[in-house]
Amino acid sequence: MASEAHAETLALREQFDTAAQQKDVATLGMWIFLITEVMFFGGMFLAYTVYRSSYPNVFARASSSINVYYGALNTVVLICSSFTMVLAVRGAQLGKRITTIVFLGLTLFLGLVFLGVKAFEWGEKFHEHHVPGPGFHLAGVPPGLQGQAQLFFSLYFAMTGLHALHMVVGAGLVITMMWLTYKGRFTAEYMTPIDITGLYWHFVDIIWIFLFPLLYLVDRHMGK
């Protein structure tokens, strides 16, 4: 049994009996890893929740100073990239190499657009003195509460920063997968690495789905 599967894929490692077991194990491993990521971001979501409930008004004020259009644009860009990613995985499932590479390429492009918008947005923050530190100042907030506004931006930078870092890692994975697909390493039976890269990419998307309303959309009606 083991030798058949071996001949079939050439990718079965020695500790497994069947290709199905190997795929199953890899997928499970990725899911557990994603759970660790949930807990990782969870720590920051907790910090956010605590401070937002302590200082609701300042958080609303600070959140309203961020440009909502960048955030919404980036959310749509990421959703598009998830869509192209799932089509790439589908292509791989069907064994269509060209389709896979094209959609992986589109995913990569959209990921880079996201990072570009993000970089631009951060650049603006530096100009507006919204970066935490000695020079921090947010208009419309009394001097005594500047610190609390700074807390919001600390969280903003920590959360979006770590999210962007995950995007960079994801982009690296996508490039690797494009290269391996080009080299013909995957077949319809064995495309687990692409599948797993897809899981990671979608997960990073989900994190952003939560970051967007939490950071950009706090009580917008009060701010303006």
Partner: peptide
């Protein structure tokens, strides 16, 4: 462990970038 990891990252950010969580 991931919760510890993020806590340490925040400490790291606080010391290096002076963001104050």
């Amino acid at each position: 462990t991931p919760v510890l990891a993020v806590t340490l990252v925040l400490i790291f950010c606080e010391r290096v970038f002076h963001i104050g969580i």
